[in-house]
Structures are given as structure tokens and as C-alpha cells.
Design a protein around this nucleic acid. Structure first.
Lengths: 332, 332
DNA sequence: GGTTTTTTTGGCAGCGCTACCAATTTGCTG
DNA sequence: CAGCAAATTGGTAGCGCTGCCAAAAAAACC
């Protein structure tokens, strides 16, 4: 079966059927401008009768400014981004905006290509992760005239709107917490940092903080793939095989940390007395493990919500710091 | 700062700058129709020079059929749906389609409203979860003339295309597996089944299978909220408090099952000798727990991929069964 | 060189809607 | 009931692009 367009009902046909002008139908449907009660009823009756569905493509083209919001996100596997989308989509739906998205796989080149494709839809705003974009991407976005929202990072200069928190501060506070608890021989298990630059920022300020307190990082294990529970488990296993006397390990995020936690459970390594574990993100699952995971809870859903609200309200350029919360947990 | 449209470069301006006609620019840009090599170069040079970004809104309006694919999904918290989106978006991006989405929160009324909003964008296809839609939704979709893809369920009649697997079969096989292992006093812990009808189908065929083998369900605990690790833990705790001598528990999905698993770990309940645990979904995390989770692995990403491929290829109506895989694991 | 083909090109009418403006109707005031 | 303001309507020119058609240019052929 080849695709066949149904004969679509147009606004003009509704106008005809209702015995009014096209612009009147348009006004009624958008509830914009003035019209009498009976006109409204006649139009609505015709709409109902014909099963009219407005064509937003045509509407958008004719009017200035669209109600599309474009998300260009690195991944859908990392729960962070579905969470952001979730927060944003609720707000956007309420305001009759439509979300469109594409996934870059943490590849800046792909980000540029996808951003270009997105701009072709003339969105009201483009939402991106963080500040690291190619020159081409920045130039394009700037030239597009649409709002630009950078999410989940505040360590840098925003192009327009930024919503999130400081990853550097998160790394710093994580380190400070471990030091305060008396850990001195600290290691790191993480995933590919070149791609996930926010994890990279956390890691570097984590290390700096350790050094500033004369307890430099003792060992690290960086795994090539994406973050995952299995990689966390594998990473900790490797790190422990190589580095002795570790008393705490910082993970690039909770997925990885849970992997490490499971490794300890499986190997009978006492937590936190023998080895402390600290994560990042504050996933729900970390609250339900036998020992709650020590981590930093990030405002992922709120980031999406606030970002969407600012776009809907067409707010002035600004950086909104939503902060984060350190969860002491029981693994560190 | 109020939103201000930049003076946008149009195709007509590019044509002017390149010294060719509008249709020639259009042909070159879409690589469609014929044009000479030098024309191509001149056009591309002008595009580059002016920083022209095609307007897909206008393009879609002018041509027949759009390259938008609409997803109307129940949730972004349940990893199932991000996984489906992930699979689909890769295929769609390769084919220059654009994904748009909205979230129903498992509310059929909201699904209807959002589907209507989606149709206003005249998508090439609408992708929905499962078969349970309101009469209004079905009528609208049918009338729209766009492709309809129902995902993750095959127990029912497809409107057009369906991609997924049988949830009833999954429930049946889960029960058969537990019975084969010798468990006879089996309980269930699940989340709200009215909303998640696919979980409901699994549960009912699970129960039927147990009854057919003279080992009817011994107890159940249904939690009001969404599925989550914490609810799974809480659910199992409640069920155990009420029902004695259970030897196995079936969970509505892996999130819930992990919660149950953690409860057992925390309470020192030996798995599987004292209590067996069986989940559903086959999340990666279940492979990394000290004892791998016994579960059914569902082809979530593949569901998205295949669905997208069928839409892109404009395939005839069909139901594609991708099956599932029973993971024996070590918890049952 | 003169045709006949084939390839390349430009013009222009929409796609379905919104924004603007002018026309019409209604409501009030004195 | 004239006289004017306010509320309601319809007409229509685009929005930026694609698809069709006919014209022009290039290539192929006798």
C-alpha cells in the first residue's frame, strides 16, 4: 500500500460550511480577536461536522514565530536527558508548544549537523547540553535569531539562556565531603570524558580539591564506552586489582557507582569501612539499595521545567543556577 | 529582551545572489532533478556566503507529505520509552526525518488531546504505545491518512502497523519458567495496572498459566504510583508481611524487581533458595547485580528501529513480532 | 548545418493559514 | 433618529517553498 493523502479538510471549507469568512474561523479557533457567541457556535459545529484538524505547518508559516522547541541532546541512554525532556515537555504541552528532538551521541560534529537540521524548522528555541559546541554551531545558532538554552552546566559563558548548576562545584563538594569523612586514598572510576565534558569538569575539580588538601588522587580507571552499571563494576574491579589501599572511590555517575557497589557486595568488600563509594546524579534507585548511595542529587527535571518556562515566557538572557544536593547516604 | 526575528535569508535571495532561478536553487539543495556542475557550485557558494538555512516549514507546506514522525508516549520515566525513541531516532535521523514527541502520563484522554495536537503538524506517521486508545483517538488517526504505528504490544488488532511482542506470551512464559523451577507458592508485586495496560496483560496471562497448573497466585500487592525501585521494595515488604510461605515473586518489571531484590539483601532473605524473584524488561543493571536478575529481555531499541524503518520505507500494514528472550539469571 | 533529443533552466501558481485593513453591523448617547 | 464609537466581519496579500510546464541551451545525430 502506497501512502495516500486523504482529502484534507481546510479552513476554507470550514468557513464555507459555517457560512462565515476564513478569517473569522481562524479567529474563533485561536480564540483571538473578537467574534460573537453565535458565530463561535456555528464555526465549532462546522469544525465538528467536518472533522477539521488545523494545519499548524501552514499556521506557523503564515505567522511570525513558531511554537516548536528543539532539543539537541547527547543521549537517551543516560537518564539525565529523558529527565530533562520530561520536565520540559510538561511545561511545553501546557503552553501548546511542541517538542522536537534529536540525539548527538556526544559528537560535536553531529551536534552541528543536527542543530542545522533543527533550525530548518524555525523553532522558537533550541535547547542543548552544556557549553561545548563547535564554532559552526555557535555561529549558526547566533545567526538564527531563535532562543538558545544551554542545559545542565554553568561553568562557562552562556550564549543566551543557561539553566543548570555548576559541575565544577559538584566535583569540588564531592571531594570535600570525602575528605571531611577522613578518606585520603581516593580513586576514580569513570567513562569517556572527552565526550561527556560535564563529567570531565566534575573530575578535574574533584582532583584539584584533593590536591589542595594534600591527598591527590591515588588511581583512576577510565572506561571507553558509555556510562553503565556494568562498566562501573568492571572499572572498580580493574582499579582495585591495580591500586592497593584505596579507601574511597569517586564514580563519574550513579550508574557507574552502582556497578562498583555491586562489585563490593559480590566480593564481600565492606562498605564503607573497607571502601567508600560516591556517585553523582541522585538516581532514585540509589535510595533503595540496602545501603543508600552517597551521591549528589541533580535537579534534572527542574532544569527542563525552568528552561521551558523561560522560553515560553520569552525571558531575557540569563543563567539560572538550580544548585544540587549532597546526599550523605551510607556508602561513604 | 523581546524576541525579535532576525532578517531571515530566503531561497529567493540565494537565487538572486547566485544569478539563477528559484527552482534551480531548490533543485540543487534537494539534489533532485537535473542541473549542471557549475550551477551547483554557484548556488552552494551563495548559500555559504549568505548563511542560508532552508525553511522546512515552507517546504513541507508546499510539498505533499512531511518528514515529521510523531511519538505519543505514556512516560519518559519508564526506560522503555526512551529506549524506543533511541532506536527510532537513529533511523529517522539517517533518513532526514524529524522526531517530535509528547507524553501522556498513561492517560488515554490526554493521549487523545496530544494525538490531535500532533496531527496538526501533518506528520508522516504517529507512533503510540499499545492498542488501548479512546474511540476518538482511533477515529482521528484513521481519518488523518497518516501512518499509525502501535508499539510494544501484539495482543490485539493493529490499526495499521504494529511492532513489538506479545505481553501475554511474556506473562505466560514467566509463569511457566517459575513453575518449571518448582515454585508453587507464587506472589505478585506490581504498579498501577489500569494505566499500564501492557503490564496488566502480562499479569493476567501469568495468573492464568499458574491456575492452569494448579498453583494459583498466592498473594499480590499493587502499588498506586508509577513503577520504581522504591515501590518494588515497599511492595515486597508489604506482601511478605501479609503472605506466608511464598517461594517466588513475579514483579511488574525490573525496576520493581530490583527493589524486591534489595529488600531481600537488606533483610538477609536468601535468593533464590528462600525466595525467588522474577522481573520483566531485561535492564542492563540486572546483569550487574551480585546475582543476575531472572527476567525477560524485551527488544525495546529494536522496536523503535524497526518501527522507524517501516515508516521510512512506507511499508504495507503489518504486525512485526520481535519476540523476547527469557534470561534465566540467578534470582529464580 | 539543420534537426531532433536531451538536459538544464526560469516562471509562477499554489500549499493552508494569519495579519492587516477596510467594510459592515451593533450599541449608545443626546 | 441622527451621529459616532465599538464590536464584528470578510477580503486578500503574503509566509517560503515545491511542482509543473514551457522555454532555452546543450548534446547528439544524419
Amino acid at each position: 500500500m502506497e501512502f495516500k493523502h486523504q482529502p484534507t479538510v481546510t479552513l476554507a471549507e470550514v468557513a464555507e460550511a459555517a457560512g462565515v469568512g476564513e478569517s473569522t474561523v481562524s479567529r474563533v479557533l485561536r480564540n483571538h480577536g473578537s467574534f460573537s457567541g453565535k458565530t463561535r457556535e456555528r464555526v465549532m459545529a462546522a469544525v465538528e461536522r467536518l472533522g477539521y484538524v488545523p494545519n499548524r505547518i501552514a499556521g506557523t508559516l503564515a505567522s511570525t514565530g513558531s511554537r516548536l522547541v528543539a532539543f539537541v541532546i547527547p543521549s537517551l541512554s543516560n537518564i539525565v536527558f529523558p529527565d530533562v525532556l520530561r520536565g520540559a515537555s510538561a511545561v511545553l504541552e501546557e503552553n501548546r508548544y511542541q517538542a522536537v528532538f534529536s540525539v548527538t551521541d556526544y559528537d560535536p560534529g553531529k551536534e552541528e549537523a543536527l542543530a542545522a537540521a533543527m533550525l530548518a524548522w524555525r523553532p522558537a528555541a533550541v535547547m542543548l547540553a552544556g557549553y561545548e559546541h563547535t564554532e559552526g554551531t555557535v555561529k549558526m545558532l547566533r545567526a538564527s535569531g531563535c532562543r538558545i538554552v544551554e542545559l545542565l552546566d554553568l561553568d562557562g559563558d552562556a550564549l543566551d539562556i543557561a539553566v543548570g548548576f555548576s559541575n565544577r562545584a559538584a566535583g569540588r563538594e564531592s571531594a570535600a565531603f570525602l575528605l571531611k569523612r577522613g578518606y585520603r586514598r581516593i580513586g576514580y572510576v569513570g567513562h569517556d570524558l572527552n565526550r561527556d565534558t560535564r563529567a570531565g569538569k566534575r573530575f578535574s575539580s574533584f582532583c584539584e580539591t584533593l590536591e589542595a588538601h594534600d591527598a591527590p588522587l591515588v588511581g583512576r580507571e577510565i572506561l571507553a564506552g558509555a556510562s553503565s552499571v556494568e562498566n562501573g563494576r568492571l572499572g572498580l574491579e580493574r582499579l582495585l586489582a591495580r591500586t592497593t589501599d584505596l579507601d574511597a572511590v569517586y564514580f563519574s555517575n550513579d550508574d557507574m557507582a552502582l556497578g562498583g557497589y555491586f562489585h563490593c557486595l559480590a566480593q564481600g568488600i565492606a562498605i564503607p569501612s573497607k571502601l567508600a563509594i560516591f556517585g553523582y546524579n541522585g538516581l532514585d534507585i540509589g535510595r533503595a539499595t540496602p545501603q543508600p548511595l552517597s551521591t549528589i542529587r541533580t535537579p534534572r527535571v527542574a532544569t527542563g521545567q525552568i528552561a521551558a518556562q523561560l522560553v515560553v515566557a520569552n525571558a531575557p538572557p540569563q543563567a539560572v543556577d538550580l544548585g544540587f544536593e549532597l546526599i550523605e547516604g551510607a556508602t561513604a
